[in-house]
């Protein structure tokens, strides 16, 4: 709806997947997996609410459709978000603090290892990024940076504080696509 959707499409398609931009409940019915991109969480929440997409999205997700949220997308997936009272799908047992890594001047890149995709570290691009401040027992931490989780998985949901779509490294997207098939 808003944000870095184009870069995600390019990445998914480079891995052989087909992608469409989802803006309506009809679009939602066509897909087997959903990426909620980075962007502004306030904007996405408002667009989802105004266009009555929260319930259809929740329904498909609870039926088992894999969903990957990056940055603002992760905020939309979290059950608990501090200082934020707009409606969101809220599907994962994680607590998230918005813009906790700071303003744009504090945006950064850093490398870290990710469980299950090989030893070669990935470069995480963090842009006004949200921080995971807590998570439930069912949540698996796949990567940490400075002792804070930055990539987590719970059942059919995957969420990251950083932006794998902005790098040339397709491994995180490949991991998500493997959750779909």
């Amino acid at each position: 709806m808003q944000g870095a959707y184009h870069k995600h499409s390019l990445m998914a398609e480079s891995l052989g997947a087909q992608s469409i931009e989802v803006r309506t409940s009809e679009d939602l019915a066509k897909i087997n997996g959903l990426i909620i991109p980075g962007g502004e969480s306030t904007v996405m929440s408002k667009l989802l609410t105004r266009n009555r997409l929260i319930e259809p999205l929740r329904r498909r997700a609870l039926e088992g459709m894999p969903v990957f949220g990056t940055c603002a997308g992760m905020i939309l997936l979290a059950k608990e978000v501090d200082n934020f009272n707009l409606p969101i799908p809220g599907l994962m047992d994680i607590s998230v603090h918005r813009n906790a890594y700071g303003r744009q001047l504090e945006s950064f890149e850093a490398a870290f290892t990710v469980k299950g995709i090989g030893e070669e570290p990935v470069t995480g691009i963090f842009i006004r990024a949200p921080k995971i401040t807590g998570y439930g027992a069912g949540v698996e931490v796949l990567a940490e940076y400075e002792d804070v989780p930055v990539l987590v998985r719970e059942n059919n949901f995957l969420a990251s504080s950083f932006h794998p779509e902005l790098t040339g490294d397709p491994r995180i997207h490949a991991l998500f696509l493997s959750m779909i098939s």
């Binding site: 709806m1 808003q2 944000g3 870095a4 959707y5 184009h6 870069k7 980075g38 962007g39 502004e40 904007v43 940055c71 603002a72 744009q104 001047l105 504090e106 945006s107 950064f108 890149e109 850093a110 691009i125 963090f126 842009i127 006004r128 932006h163 902005l166 790098t167």
Partner: peptide, 18 residues
């Protein structure tokens, strides 16, 4: 590594469709 070219262009990417 703060304020790299990728984080700068990245913020612009986040504003797309807005």
């Amino acid at each position: 590594q703060e304020s790299t070219w990728k984080t700068k262009v990245g913020l612009a990417e986040m504003l797309k469709g807005g």
